[in-house]
């Protein structure tokens, strides 16, 4: 295939080869093989992205085929002036900080414990990782049943401890519950990544620290953590980007309630697009989420680069 793009082999060629201007348009053989796939991927990403941008400046009609009525900056003005939207961003931030904070602390803690285990580490690691393999929607359903005040185990246990409210019925308790469900599922990911980082810490450095009389906490603080900061940041980045667009557990358990207490931006986006069918406004919200996600990832990458 690559030869088809080159000059006709029957034409006489000079020993110096083709002109530089011609060389620029030639594809190497591997590039030629990859070109269809890469082009398809580009089309699949770029066309929807451009459509999304156009939709965010339009009012979208569905009946009789997709039609876009140009409305200028209306959707963008609305999204920036919508108080409910900013409140949803605040809730998303609470969700992000809550899930990430707990997952990082617990994940690193579990990894440190597992790292010290010699016998049966494989089995323990498998058990720890299990929640990660459950589909988020199933985690939500499990959470909903366990917190149901009629027959839920957690509700029963909390009632025995004196808690009288309904877990998913109170604003604070509902947000806490969905954060904890997320933490249960994704802490193992942090633990696994951290464990991989711990395995890469140079043993001779640890040995040197030990010979210098450094204790466990001191070694952790001055040797281990600086060595795994990069990998922790990667774990943080993955979960942060995930948390910004997290949808499954909340929609299954509370669907944004009670009193909008768990209505994060992804829930509002879904509601706008697929409940109100206001696709123009939904496109603006979606692009806003994209910008925020890019800013978060850029921030992490900058920190990573500073760490070398």
């Amino acid at each position: 295939m690559s030869t088809a793009l080159r000059a006709d082999p029957t034409e006489p060629q000079t020993k110096q080869g083709p002109e530089p201007a011609q060389r620029r348009f030639r594809l190497t053989f591997p590039a030629t093989l990859m070109a269809p796939g890469v082009s398809l991927l580009a089309l699949l990403s770029i066309i929807p992205f451009i459509t999304l941008i156009v939709m965010s400046f339009s009012r979208v009609r569905l009946l009789g085929g997709l039609q876009l009525d140009w409305v200028g900056l209306d959707n963008w003005t609305r999204v920036l002036q919508d108080v409910d939207m900013w409140v949803s961003w605040w809730r998303t931030a609470v969700y992000l900080v809550g899930t990430l904070g707990l997952e990082m602390v617990l994940g690193v803690g579990i990894a440190l414990l597992l790292h010290r285990v010699v016998r049966g580490r494989g089995l323990m690691l498998s058990l720890v990782l299990l929640p990660m393999f459950v589909a988020p929607v199933i985690v939500g359903l499990l959470g909903r049943y366990l917190t149901d005040s009629t027959f839920g185990l957690y509700s029963w246990a909390l009632a025995k401890l004196g808690y009288e409210g309904d877990i998913l019925g109170g604003s604070t308790s509902a947000m806490t519950a969905v954060i904890l469900m997320d933490v249960w599922e994704w802490t193992p990911l942090i633990a696994m990544i951290t464990l991989a980082g711990l395995s890469g810490v140079n043993p001779s450095v640890l040995e040197a620290a030990s010979l210098d009389g450094a204790g466990y906490w001191s070694t952790l603080r001055h040797v281990v953590f600086p060595s795994i900061t990069g990998i922790l940041l990667v774990a943080f980045l993955i979960r942060a980007m995930d948390a910004v667009r997290y949808y499954d557990i909340i929609t299954v358990t509370t669907n944004g309630g009670p009193a909008d207490a768990t209505k994060t931006v992804p829930i509002r986006l879904f509601e706008t697009a697929f409940r109100f069918f206001d696709f123009g406004y939904a496109a603006a919200i979606g692009l806003m989420m994209l910008v925020v996600t890019i800013f978060i990832s850029k921030g992490f990458v900058a920190v990573l680069q500073r760490k070398g």
Binding site: D148, S149, T150, E164, G165, D166, L168, G169, T254, P258
Partner: peptide, 16 residues
């Protein structure tokens, strides 16, 4: 009302 009312839709209240 039952405190779980805030978490019940028609299925929930029927089950209760």
């Amino acid at each position: 009302a039952h405190p779980a009312s805030g978490t019940w839709d028609w299925d929930g209240v029927g089950a209760a």
